[in-house]
Design a protein around this nucleic acid. Structure first.
Lengths: 258, 258
DNA sequence: GCTTGTGAACACCTTCACAGCG
DNA sequence: CGCTGTGAAGGTGTTCACAAGC
């Protein structure tokens, strides 16, 4: 099956990471997409409503701050400073302060930041106070691994459905989820109110399934498929590419040896 | 030394990752993050030897070009142009030409590029002509999924070992690999000559296992653990952070809705 | 004193536009 | 004429260094 449909001339403002990175996987990334990979998809200023627009690079770091802050909370630390937090998150203190100032978050000069406060500010800015419901498309090895990944549930992400097209897999149980048939996607998305789709399917099938997700109203998609996907404006796509990550690693490894 | 980006980061690409990250995974983020990780140890331009230093962003794209070129080969196309290839890879034609010119690769003005030639040039520049042997640390869901991931074997990456610490898992068979005991890491790395390590272990165990890998002489590591890892200079670390990828996605999704 | 917040300098990437050349 | 290769321009992201303020 072919990858690109020549439909849309207009090139989406997508693409990583990078990840990079970005994933970004990368990245994807994822992600991310930084990419991962490389860069990730970005939307134009979404109406002036309330949105502060945060740079992609800042977003990636904010998640690291959240993690470090979580560890501090667990250790019972109430206050921290840009120096300490930056070390823990593995970044430069200056850019950490700049990131936080983008949120409008206030620290106290001469003192530092209140841990709980920061967690709240960052979570709010990143949209983590909502409950996100994830539908995983593709119950192969990766899809099953993702559905059981503890790191998701821990921060407001709930896997509400796991779908596949193969009759051999549909109906089997993975964790506490039963694999459902992809042809019921529409009803399942509606019933579960899933708002994030994860594509863990072979490259050849990815664009079609991506289109299906979009058609069902899912507007945020994380793809692990090793292909370039096209999505209409108004849909956010991030890509995590495992083969890409290894290849970039190979490049650096080669350079070390030479 | 810098630390991380995500996916991908790449940095994702991952990331990402950058992720990127991205990445970045982060990308397998290896990303992320991006992820991607940092410029890792800063290599001096190896003087005139042979090393061209390629920007991280270029590396991420080169892998996409490779993929698109592979599809062209499969379709029996012998020549292509920056316009066509760029579309297929989802990038701007100008930057594609710039990327390729960094390799010293020659196209023909007025004509385009020879597909097979480009594949060779890019593969060589990225170190993909060697055989890379991958040891996967952690035979949980993710580790098992990775060990069976077809995308690895397809471009010179061979999974030569799958290790775990749990007695329940050691000795079991995954695909055509038998899970080995992590305490034998040293011998296994020596016997298989593994030169890339993949960490698919819980965050709490990651730094220790990372250190073990380094001690055994593995100097290229791709980590899926949701923690910041420290490695000595001379070791390349990339990171793919799945939770980060989803969080960045959540941010964009929230912004769409508002 | 200490740490934050930020302007300015810097480095890196991307896009544009066109010269160069088959 | 068409397409590559690239200087120059434009962005974006990071680091530096210091003023502001508890």
């Amino acid at each position: 099956m072919k990858v690109s449909k020549e439909l849309s001339q207009s090139r989406m403002p997508t693409e990583h990471q990078p990840a990079s990175n970005e994933a970004k996987l990368p990245a994807a990334e994822i992600p991310i997409e930084h990419d991962l990979d490389p860069g990730a998809s970005v939307e134009q200023t979404p109406a002036g409503s309330l949105g502060r627009i945060l740079p992609e690079a800042t977003l990636a770091r904010l998640t690291q701050y959240l993690r470090a802050l979580g560890a501090m909370q667990a250790r019972g630390e109430a206050r921290t400073s840009s120096g300490v937090l930056a070390t823990e998150a593995g970044v430069n203190p200056a850019i950490l302060r700049k990131d936080l100032s983008l949120l409008g978050s206030y620290g106290t000069r001469g003192v530092g930041y209140a841990v709980t406060d920061l967690v709240e500010q960052i979570s709010k800015a990143m949209g983590l106070l909502r409950q996100w419901r994830v539908a995983i498309i593709g119950a192969g090895n990766l899809g099953r691994a993702l559905s059981g990944y503890g790191g998701f549930r821990s921060r407001g992400f709930e896997v509400v459905a796991l779908l596949d097209s193969s009759p051999d897999v549909v109906g089997t149980t993975v964790g506490d989820l039963q694999v459902q048939d992809i042809s019921d996607l529409d009803e399942i998305v509606a019933a579960t109110n899933a708002n994030i789709g994860v594509l863990s399917v072979p490259g050849a099938a990815a664009q079609d399934l991506c289109d299906m997700l979009v058609q069902c109203g899912v507007r945020s998609i994380l793809s692990f498929a090793p292909v370039v996907l096209q999505v209409p404006a108004g849909v956010v796509l991030r890509k995590v590419d495992l083969a890409t990550e290894l290849q970039i690693l190979a490049y650096h490894a080669q350079n070390l040896d030479s």
